[in-house]
Nucleic acid binder design. Structure first.
Lengths: 192, 192
DNA sequence: AGCTGGTGAGACGTTGATGTCTCATTTGGG
DNA sequence: CCCAAATGAGACATCAACGTCTCACCAGCT
């Protein structure tokens, strides 16, 4: 028996299953439980042993996504240094969570039962506060609202995660493409 | 009898139904045919008379989305003037199609049967060519690939469309938020 | 070697969405 | 005024996914 809470050695890696499920479900929300199981390399019965049903799976995805998102925010120390540096740290920490994040952003189906909604709202507020801090410091433009910059960050992370999955963007360019576009935009400035 | 191809006056507005369906399905891909019908303000039977089934509905969404996307590209005259001006025209023309576009980008389920895929690939190539033209003219940065800028444009349009739906962004700011972020980024430059 | 616990494969009943049907109603045109 | 066309509501059978179960198998531990 392992010292961990969930099972022995040949036990399924719960997080790995959830990440695979997120990657699949964010691209094909109508995927079958069987498809999810196969994508994770396990049997449908095993998937069902770990997550009582589709709802439970989605809830687990939501919980893990919010948890890891929050951990990334904590670790990024959004209040330290310039807002730009903080944003770069945040995106760097968010890279491993990009698949989960893409699922969360896409599946607003979750926010029907306004329960976990508060968890997401708290994350939203913290990211939004980062952009507001950047505006107050004079780093960021004030004509783009913090709410929009927050949404745009989510959107770009999800889009880039998909682009990497499909091979349209190199995985090593993930952070650069997102941060550079979000901060600097496509226009070529003179002083850059 | 109307002179139009599809029915008399009290006939369902096919495009309106498709736009509503796209707005709903892009947010809740598992929505029931009944939910789609109710969202469009029609009965399930009527929805079924116009679209033989869920697949047919999705195909129609895809066809309409590609068609209107292509029309917007044609009308934007991507080869005229500066690339920035062309991009602004494109986003302006894409605003009414944003819901369809968000659905198309999200539902890569469509691209399993690689058939309509070519239609999408052609659009991709044209938008990508616009960004490449901007780079060659010295307007746009060359460290962000045209493919990524294209994906980012799609992602931002979809994200902004959702943000407008949820009231987080004012509808009148749609074009401004997308173009300004995509071109200029969040960083406050000295010469702007 | 024997035991225990987790897994995969498959069978099975249940459920909900789907697709088709009929019928009453309404709308617009002849 | 009457008819044609389209719609909405509902009934109905079908079917695929779901959730549960059993059983055989395999890995690790004692």
């Amino acid at each position: 028996m392992s010292h961990l809470g969930y099972g022995c050695l040949m036990t399924v890696d719960r997080e790995q299953v959830l990440r695979t499920a997120a990657a699949l479900l964010s691209r094909k929300a109508t995927a079958t439980m069987d498809e999810v199981a196969r994508a994770a390399g396990i049997g449908r019965a095993t998937l069902h042993r770990h997550f009582a049903g589709r709802d439970a799976l989605v809830r687990a995805l939501e919980a893990l996504g919010i948890q890891e998102f929050e951990a990334a925010i904590d670790q990024a120390r959004l209040h330290d240094g310039t807002a730009e540096e903080a944003l770069r740290r945040l995106v760097a920490g968010l890279e491993p969570v990009a698949g989960l994040l893409a699922f969360l952003v896409t599946e607003n189906q979750l926010f029907e039962g306004d329960q976990m909604n508060e968890g997401w709202a708290r994350l939203d507020a913290r990211v939004s506060a980062l952009f507001r801090r950047g505006q107050e410091r004079g780093e960021f433009r004030i004509d783009l609202t913090p709410a929009w910059l927050t949404e745009a960050l989510y959107g770009l992370i999800g889009t880039c995660a998909w682009a990497v999955q499909d091979g349209r963007v190199a995985a090593k360019d993930f952070q650069y493409m997102i941060v550079e576009l979000l901060l600097g935009g496509a226009r070529r400035s003179v002083e850059r």
